[in-house]
Every structure is written in C-alpha cells, then in structure tokens.
Amino acid sequence: MLETFLQFLFSGITAGAIYALVALGFTLIYNASHVINFAQGEFVMIGGMATVFLADAGWPIWAAAPLAVLLAVAVGVALERLAIAPAREASTVSLIVITIGASILLRGLAQLVWDRNFHTLAPFSGEEPIRVLGASILPQSLWVLGGSLLAVLALGWFFGRTLLGKAVIATAHNRLAAELMGIETRHVMTLCFALSALLGALGGVLITPITLTSYDAGVMLGLKGFSAAILGGMGSATGAVVGGLLLGVVEAMGAGFLSSAYKDAIAFVLILVVLVAVPRGLMGARGAERV
C-alpha cells in the first residue's frame, strides 16, 4: 500500500513539477502588466523543439540548449515589440486576445520551420530510475523539480532585491506613476517578455526528455500551467510551484485511487472548489486594491 501510494506521489510530483515550471512563466508577464500570456506554452515548445533539432544536427546539449533558449527569447522580444507594444493603449483583455493569436501563429510557424512529428531528447543523467521503498522516479523529474525551485529563488531575488525587479512591480501597479519616477515602462514590458520566454524555454528543455515535444505541445502545457498558476494565485512565484505540484499530485491520486478516466475532471473540480473558497488562489496577494 505504501509502495502504491509513493508511486502515485512520485507520479504527481513528476507531472506537478512540469506544470509548476510552465506556471512560473505566466508570473512575470502577469506581474508586469496583468496580461496573461497565452503564448507561454509556445515558449516552452520552442525551447524543446529547437533543442531537439539542434541536437539532431549534431550539436552537444550544452550548446544546443542555450541557443534554443536564446531563440525563444528573441521570439518573446519580437512578440512584445511587434504585437503587444503597438497595442499598449488597448485594454488588458485585448492584449490577452493578442497573445492567443500569437500562440496560434507560433504553432503554425513551428509546423512549417520544423515538422509535425513528436520528438524526444536524451535524459540529462540517464534513464535508470531511482527506487525508493519499491516506488520509482526518473532522474529527469528531479532536474525539473530542481529547475522549478531555482526559478522560484531567482524570481524572488529579482522582484525583491533588484532595482529592475522593483521597477517591474512599480510599472504593474501604476504605469503613469512609474514613468514619472523615471522608469522606462516600454523597456520593462520587453524585459518581462524576454525573461518569461527564457523561463518557458528553459522549462521546455528540461521537460522534453519526459513529456516529448511537438509543434502543438504548448497547448496542453499552457493550459495546465495556467490552471496551476490560477490555483496557486496568479502572480505569486511560490504559488505557481505550490499550485503546480498540488495539481499534479491530485491528478495522480485521482487516477490511482478513483478513476483514471476522470482524473482531469477531479483536478478541475478541485480548482473550482479552491477558487470559490479563496478567489485569489492559494498564495495570491491578499492586499486590498486602493481605489
């Protein structure tokens, strides 16, 4: 029984770490602009696909991965400069719709530039599972988990300790006031898209050995990551990780102890219950908005 429970837990942690890593990407752009970037899943896909294709072309992984991440960053910057910045005066909802359009465009481009097959990447430290009390977990899952924790720490440091991070938060709170304080708010948005593309692509590189990747891999990852971010509290980095892990574990336990056919339904019911009880999510900011 313990063995079974542990296996479900490990499965949940594996999936949850992946959701958490994607959820983290939503945090940055949301914090800067209250825009939910629905092309976040596509950043993850670009990171994975570009690494795969560079690796297939003979590049070693330590060179392929950074280059793939750079490509995603370039795409993120281009997206902000070409699509978001010109519509800066539009409402948040319009900007969100633009990101949905961008996600469709990026999927289409990935189909043309690469292909429509699924691809995989060799795990970073072997495929030999680590066994604990009869249950097993893949070393790559620990990489993903480690990546999420590092990202949380980095984000915490960025927003809490650096001037640039504080400028981002100031811009999010009041663009006009931030501009009057001498913050170049235009650059803040570009920076946030670049960083969140970086985070997404890094995640894509880490998770591809487990999940595989294809031009449309971003759709489901984006959706699950978004759910995780909402569950944990949109805008909170710790919340994204807590939400991701919780979502993964609930799915795994639901599939294991109840029914694998309804595991997604079980997870979404949980999200609804949490949102009814705590509308801002588990770790969402509780401070009252000043009107």
């Binding site: 499965s11 795994a252 294991g256 694998s260």
Partner: peptide, 20 residues
C-alpha cells in the same frame, strides 16, 4: 481497464493499478 488523457506526461498511476 485504465485510460489516460491526450497529452498526459506520466502514466505510472495507471501502470501501478494494472500491476496490482
């Protein structure tokens, strides 16, 4: 008799049930 979702990333719970 187990199922998984279209883009699930881990099917070890289903396998554990099948094994049991």
């Amino acid at each position: 008799d187990e199922t998984h979702g279209a883009q699930d990333t881990d099917m070890t719970p289903q396998w554990t049930k099948i094994k049991n």
